[in-house]
Computed example of a mutant assay.
Amino acid sequence: MSAQQSQGIQTLLEAEKAAAKIVQEARQYRVQKLKDARTEAAKEIEEYKKAREGEFKKFEASHAGSTSEAETAIDKETEVKLKVITESYNKGSDEVVQKLLARVTQVKPELHRNLRKAQS
């Protein structure tokens, strides 16, 4: 009976080794599948990025012209406004200086209203 038991034990050990080998192969297969999935996902992400970047560059190119046109229009408008302001300044500066001088040199000596009330 001991030969039969030792052969049974030997069979169990061999079955256990075979099962461990199968489990190890399954783990390796799972790890490989995960690596493949990550690689494929990275490729898809990169393709999506390139597509979106291309769309953005097209959008940017189509709107860049309108931006420079807007800048040109704003610059022209600013120049016109500056000319108007400069002309207005040149026309009225002498008159303003004269009015200021007239007010500054026109002195009426009189008591402050609070002082007048106190004296009354």
Rank of each mutant, 00 (worst) to 15 (best):
S68C: 12
Q106S: 03
S120P: 01
I9E: 04
Y48C: 15
S93L: 04
K57W: 09
S6K: 08
A64H: 08
A41I: 00
L111G: 01
E110W: 00
S62C: 05
Q32A: 13
A3F: 14
K33S: 06
S93N: 10
T11G: 06
A61L: 00
A20S: 14
E44C: 02
V84L: 03
E110L: 05
K117T: 07
E47A: 11
V84A: 08
K108Y: 11
A18P: 06
K99E: 03
L13P: 09
R30F: 07
V31K: 08
S88A: 13
T11P: 00
A73H: 00
E87Q: 01
E40K: 09
A18Y: 10
A18N: 14
E79R: 07
E60S: 14
I45M: 12
T67L: 15
E16Q: 15
A51L: 10
E14C: 03
E46K: 08
S62G: 02
G54L: 05
Q4P: 03
V23R: 08
V97S: 07
I45F: 12
L111N: 02
A26N: 11
S66Y: 10
K108V: 14
A19L: 08
K58G: 07
Y89F: 10
A3E: 14
A51P: 03
S68R: 12
S66D: 15
Y29S: 13
S68M: 15
A3L: 12
L100I: 04
T11R: 04
S2E: 14
V96G: 05
R38V: 09
G65I: 10
E55V: 05
A64V: 08
E47V: 08
T39A: 14
G92C: 03
V23D: 09
L34R: 05
K108S: 13
E55N: 03
A42T: 07
D36W: 04
Q106D: 06
R113S: 14
A37P: 02
K35F: 06
K17T: 12
Y48F: 15
I85K: 13
Q24F: 13
E69F: 10
E44I: 03
A64L: 03
V104F: 11
G8R: 13
L101Y: 02
